[in-house]
Nucleic acid binder design. Structure first.
Length: 136
RNA sequence: GCGGAUGGCCGGAUGGCCGCGGGGGGCGGCAACGCCCCGCGAGGAAAGUCCGGACUCCCCGAAGCAACGGUGCCGGGUAACGCCCGGCCGGGGAAACCCGAGGGAAAGCGCCACAGAGAUCAGACCGCCACGGUCACCCCGGAGGUUCGCCUUCGAAGGAGCCGCGGUAAGGGUGAAACGGUGGGGUAAGAGCCCACCGCGGGGCUGGCAACAGGCCCGGCACGGCAAGCCCCACCGGGAGCAAUGCCAAAUAGGGGCCCUAUACGGGCGGCUUCGGCCCCGGGGCCCGGGUUGGCAGCUGGAGCGCGCUGGUAACAGCGCGCCGAGAGGAAUGGCCAUCGCCGGCGCGAUCUACGCGGCGGUACAGAAUCCGGCUUACAGGCCAUCCGCGCGC
């Protein structure tokens, strides 16, 4: 099972090794931030739903939040989905995210936990591209 | 070895890359913060939120009574419990063992359908039996007739059947349950009518702390079931919950107090006018309390865990030594990968078992949210001990 891992590592070489100058994404914790992001653009993917909005303040930080409601499953299923979303955000957002934006990743029942990790990474990149395209 | 019963335990391992949440230390920096190092970081059920507590706030003189809710054989354990341990009784099993809301039905009310003759101080449907009446039929005797086979008629004893009037609670049948069961005597047939044993009720005796058990005497036997319908008795119980509760504080809006502004624009006050004064409104400053949101505390060292000894059948308790084992708050404890375990079935190695190799599939239930003690429910796979029965060997 070497080829898949190698291809992902090669394709995401830039994303997997974020440059030191890039700011690590901050985590959203306030309900108000989530409500504002929900008013922005949304892009549905097989493993998750992405929401994003430009904050419009002078801070250049990329921020991201995670949502898994009870529709995703019991506590174990929700936690697992949230952890996988956290992991793909950590890999992709520093390179593909836009400074000054807030993103929210929403977990989906079964799909978020079952979809191969490499696919999830690719999904987030294309979702970000489409979201930014809509915003333009 | 096979089948079964009970109690207890585990619930993947190692490594690599990249991460997360607390804590401690070091360096840089006024600080915010950044970097480095060390150590810690989910469960047996963390789950359901069903009981019992600790801890907070609210209410409240004490006690009793009433209401409401809960518990319910006895003894013990415990901070407490509806939990646990030991025992008793009843039921199931060949046994180990398992199951039981298991106080009171002579305090009272209520209910007991259907079936059945009759369902509580009940009842005669079938059956059984005695007596009275009637009589088919059989046997005997007399008289008459005769084809000598027998026929008719009268009388008497018995008598199936039918009718009437009674006896009976043994048997059949109905039912969850039928004035207790089995056997014998007895009787017309039967019946606690009488007797023995069992059961039941009462009394005292012995053993036991008790639930209760054992045997003795008396009574021929009455007092049906449901209390998970109401009820009675005994015991227990204030309410709400960590989003409890306490502390700190910015912006905005609003409330209160004090001071200043005033001659202002405006309104009011002493009969009127002027000056002056006071008050309201307006503006400014300071302070106070409430409050949204946010932050801090509560927040984890405790009815704690491990080992040993002592007491106890045990639950458990005491003592000694050792240990610190999550503390988040849109909520960390992870993501990806490799190797190895474990289980299942398949193929190959000689046919099976054992064993080896190969590839395939599976590796559960489930995520702390103030903290403890329980209960209940879920769970891939596995381990240990004790006991019962059967088989084999010594």
């Amino acid at each position: 099972m070497i080829p898949p891992g190698a291809s992902v590592a090669g394709a995401n070489a830039g994303a997997a090794m974020p440059p030191a100058v890039s700011v690590r994404p901050e985590i959203l914790r306030k309900r108000a931030d989530f409500l504002r992001a929900a008013r922005g653009r949304r892009q549905a993917m097989p493993g998750f739903v992405l929401q994003g909005i430009a904050r419009g303040d002078e801070s250049g930080a990329i921020r991201v939040g995670f949502t898994c409601s009870k529709k995703v499953g019991n506590a174990v299923a929700r936690n697992r989905a949230k952890r996988r979303l956290r992991e793909i955000a950590r890999h992709v957002l520093p390179a593909a995210g836009r400074p000054g934006w807030d993103y929210v990743l929403i977990g989906r029942r079964e799909a978020t936990a079952a979809r191969p990790f490499a696919d999830l990474l690719a999904d987030l990149e294309t979702a970000l591209t489409r979201l930014h395209g809509l915003a333009r």
